[in-house]
């Protein structure tokens, strides 16, 4: 029935689906280091998806952005995160504000919402992989959900980075990538943001002896 879809599109769809799956796995994950691993895996899938798109369309800038993804999201950021987790000596389980099954149910509802919201938008696009737009939107929403429900600052950063993955996927699937300048700019932003956040973590811990963001509630004026 959908024999008309070329293999590359099928591959991209598959990778997109795995990215979605990993976003869910991150939502359900309890251990910090596994969370970072999952993030790296998600980056790797993103790399593969971009690479497939690059090979199919032969656009050179997609190759660059694939390489950038590999360097930044599969190697650099997970490495920094690993180091942070080690140095900050974070152990044990991620604490969630809402229990995990409920979070996942909310996640499923979000996916449905994202798919439906994305449908009319993806009609506008002409690329063969426009179906993944819904998945990208869902990944962004799930990452957002993760940022809302987690208590440790570092898992919020992972959520933030995963959200960026979703945006990147949207860009690749809907328009075959953004202009190179924009991508470079975003990449730099993410990297710098990560480093600054890393510095913040140390500050937060020195101040409160913990990375639990609930302590920051004390910072308000009253």
């Amino acid at each position: 029935m959908n024999a008309a879809i070329p293999l590359s599109a099928q591959l991209i769809n598959l990778f997109a689906a795995v990215i979605l799956l990993l976003a869910f796995a991150m939502l359900a994950q309890r251990r910090m280091l596994s969370l970072v691993n999952l993030f790296a895996a998600q980056g790797f899938c993103l790399f593969l998806a971009t690479l497939t798109a690059a090979v199919t369309t032969g656009q050179s800038h997609l190759f660059y952005s694939a390489g950038l993804t590999l360097l930044l999201k599969v190697i650099a950021l997970p490495w920094i995160l690993y180091r942070l987790v080690r140095q900050l000596n974070i152990k044990g389980e991620v604490e969630a504000l809402i229990n995990i099954p409920t979070t996942m149910l909310v996640g499923i509802v979000l996916v449905m919402a994202a798919f439906n919201v994305a449908l009319p938008i993806s009609e506008l696009s002409h690329t063969i992989t426009r179906g993944t737009l819904g998945i990208a939107l869902a990944v962004v929403m799930l990452a957002f959900l993760m940022m809302i429900t987690r208590q440790k600052a570092i898992s919020q950063v992972v959520g933030f980075l995963s959200m960026e993955n979703g945006l990147f996927l949207a860009a690749t699937s809907a328009t075959y990538g953004m202009p190179m300048v924009v991508e470079l700019g975003i990449a730099l932003d993410v990297l710098v943001g990560m480093i600054i956040l890393g510095v913040f973590f140390f500050q937060i811990r020195d101040q409160f002896d913990s990375l639990d963001i609930r302590h920051m509630e004390k910072l308000k004026d009253n």
């Binding site: 959908n2 769809n13 997109a16 799956l21 996942m104 998945i135």
Partner: peptide
């Protein structure tokens, strides 16, 4: 329940992905 809840969620995701990627395109 968590283990099988995950299975359920995966199955629902499969269904949704099927509806999104494989029917509409």
């Amino acid at each position: 329940p968590e283990f099988l809840g995950t299975a359920f969620m995966l199955a629902v995701l499969g269904l949704l992905v099927r509806l999104l990627l494989e029917v509409k395109v």
